[in-house]
Amino acid sequence: MIEFHLDERSGLSPYLQIVRQVRQALRLGLLREGDRLPTVKEVVAQLAINPNTVLKAYRELEHDGLVAARPGVGTFVTATLVDATLAAHGPLRQELRRWLAKARRAGLDEESIEALFMTTFRTTAQEEIA
């Protein structure tokens, strides 16, 4: 079972935050096939959020084929996002660390590193879409 949390400053709507947290948990292997998601009642009682927000998030996850609702029982995980990419995380992290060290040596401070990373990330993302 996972527990959701909301970040009010993230700028993301609560429903999207729930969707992302489920996906994240699936990716990290915190949720596996057959696991039950918290019920709508449990989520709203914990987060004090609108029930429709949770329903909407679960519907989207269901639509994506990640979970399935069994009426009267609960919502269960039906797929997993843990895949081959998990194995690649280690080496990629290593490389990123090396790159960060290099950037610091070049005199970039935290803010500049973040800005450089984000702009590069965005432009490549846009290029891919285009």
Binding site: V44, A48, P51
Partner: peptide, 14 residues
Amino acid sequence: RREFLQGLMEAAVE
């Protein structure tokens, strides 16, 4: 405030 709204939302579902 949070506890009150939690109770309220839970009841709204229930």
